[in-house]
Design a binder for these strands. Structure first.
Lengths: 355, 355
DNA sequence: GTGAAAGCGCTAACAC
DNA sequence: GTGTTAGCGCTTTCAC
């Protein structure tokens, strides 16, 4: 019988035994070297590494996972959109995951898909990830009742309260309410009597957070809380809302739940003859790349996506690797209000500006 | 000896033998059921499924991968940016990958990272993916010489000529030159003597493609090819280029390699007193969500990201599953020019349109 | 410091 | 239609 007998091992990738044989050591020693385990002499280590190099050896991850029970991978559930927020978060997550030596598995949810989130999480669990990050979840049911997912690995939920049951549940980036608060206060401090709000779709936690922050800022100063307009994050929905706002002379300041909607809103306002910021001030949210270059340059809130992702992932990985230890505490995200040219004092009540 | 002997199998996940035992069949039959193999009676199938359900059984992917030599996963290399193009492509890819029953592993490259692409591909290979898609690659070296990667699984390169050596190399979405051609022709047909170009960073294949398409359109009609400005995809770089163009009265039409730069460029033009589109026409590329709502609404080229991703992936999966068969042919992507309000005839020489 | 042996939970071949 | 027998290439005990 030739060694080629059995399931085709002809022309197959080299295994650790092959490396061991070439280096003149046992297979276990090869394993030790590749896992950076102690108790390997420098000489042996070098020999093994050299042999591996020569053979073009690379560890078989499936075998590793099977034997160790860990896949060294983190799964992430994102929205199936190229929206700036979710996309930025995903990029931030990838960077950190790779830095920590884990692999990233991605699953999207599609808006409107009934079993979206749970289906996505399930498919990740099928793949055997060691931890899961859920980015920007949406309430699928509307009533957030018995939807609670059951997961048996640590979970990090970005920008939201946890809709899951898991051994460890972490949250990060849930400071949107604070940021909305700051944005609203900025408008108030300019002299506006109150601030209107163009909210995001209320099925999104992020949208609800921002609305809550806006409302809190208003009530904290005893201002009236005007009725809320709701968009779908798109510039088109901002445009539609803008047409309605334009017809109402009492509107002098609008806080939008994201930049796209703010841009659509400004366009509608402008077309209706209401100048921004002279007649109406507008604040966005996200600081998308073009925000500084639209007309007028948009005052907005910048989300520290990278910092949030990094901090959250660090805690998730910690939880994955130390199942029994206490989870790391969360750090508050810095609030970053970028004041540009879309906000100004109101036309009358404010300072005696040029008319 | 209790069954708990050996490495801790206490409280562990149920295995297929457990299901088999409960269903009163052999382990192999369970495997058959879960792989949708033929030759299982309806009765047995039901029993197995029921037993699995009861136990909360889910297949161990690592074991599957180890035994079968296939991971059923596709790796994708993307840029570590939230740029609309790459982000959209990634979303499109995820959708198709999941539909075809594969898992998605993602690795980013960071601009400026020396070993970016090859490092990313390597990490994917380490993970043992069955196929790789490289999205929007950049020439790391500048001279695209000996950088050629050697990969042992099929590869799909999006929007570019293949920088790799692999058993199968597919390309998709490499129709950017055609689209740039169309955009340029649109401007020419409006009566402009020639069209200037604000290119993307030339290390990007996509940027080079668009430049080539623009140049081809110009030379096809015997027009002079003006010097090219180069940006970095950002609105800021568009703004900088816009200031230079504004100082040159002969510029009446500019084709930008993406929408962000076009928006920055328009802002610079406007600030300099050059009206868009009356004095200068501008065309973008991508059709980002806010393109229709900026001032003026942007004429742009829409890339069919979803269609491209879908078609490309279908071919990649085919290649993965039929290593010996001929690769599927590529279909040409449809060109989609969205004409909005940022383009018009030139101030003088144009056709006698309504004044 | 190093090695031998025993699985991890599945799929692949073949027998029945 | 179904079961039996071998591995897949590692990590994990435990012995030396």
């Amino acid at each position: 019988m030739t060694p080629e007998t059995g399931r085709g091992r002809s022309s197959a990738a080299p295994r650790s035994v092959d490396v061991a044989r070439l280096a003149g050591v046992s297979q276990k020693t090869v394993s030790r070297v590749f896992n950076d385990e102690p108790y390997v002499s420098e000489d042996v280590r070098r020999r093994v590494l050299h042999a591996a190099e020569q053979l073009g050896y690379r560890r078989n991850n499936a075998a590793r996972a099977l034997a160790s029970g860990r896949t060294r991978s983190i799964g992430v559930v994102t929205l199936g959109t190229a929206l700036y927020g979710p996309a930025s978060l995903l990029m931030g997550v990838e960077r950190v995951v790779r830095d920590t030596g884990y692999a990233l598995r991605v699953v999207n949810t599609v808006e409107g898909d009934p079993a979206g989130l749970s289906g996505a999480v399930d498919s990740l669990l099928d793949q055997g990830v060691d931890g899961i990050v859920i980015s920007e979840p949406i309430d699928e049911t509307g009533d957030g009742a018995d939807t609670s997912l059951r997961v048996d690995v640590p979970v990090l939920v970005m920008g939201a309260p946890p809709p899951v049951t898991a051994p460890v549940v972490l949250t990060a980036g849930d400071g949107a309410d604070l940021m909305a608060h700051t944005a609203t206060e900025h408008l108030l401090s300019l002299g506006h009597a109150t601030v209107h709000h163009l909210a995001g779709p209320q099925r999104w936690y992020a949208a609800r957070d921002r609305l809550a922050g806006w409302r809190a800022a208003l009530t904290a100063q005893g201002r009236t809380v005007p009725p809320v307009a709701e968009g779908d994050w798109s510039a088109g929905s901002g445009y539609a809302a803008g047409r309605r706002f334009a017809a109402d002379d009492t509107v002098t300041a609008v806080f939008c739940a994201n930049d796209d909607m703010a841009i659509g809103l400004i366009r509608a306002l402008t077309e209706a003859g209401r100048r921004v910021p002279e007649d109406v001030s507008v604040v966005g949210f996200d600081d998308i790349p073009v925000a500084a270059y639209v007309t007028p340059p948009l005052t907005t809130v910048r989300q520290p996506f990278d910092a949030v992702a990094q901090e959250g992932l660090k805690r998730l990985v910690h939880a994955v690797e130390n199942p029994t230890a206490d989870p790391l505490p969360a750090g508050g995200p810095p609030v970053d209000l970028i004041v540009r040219a879309s906000t100004a004092p109101p036309p009358d009540g404010g300072a005696p500006t040029t008319d």
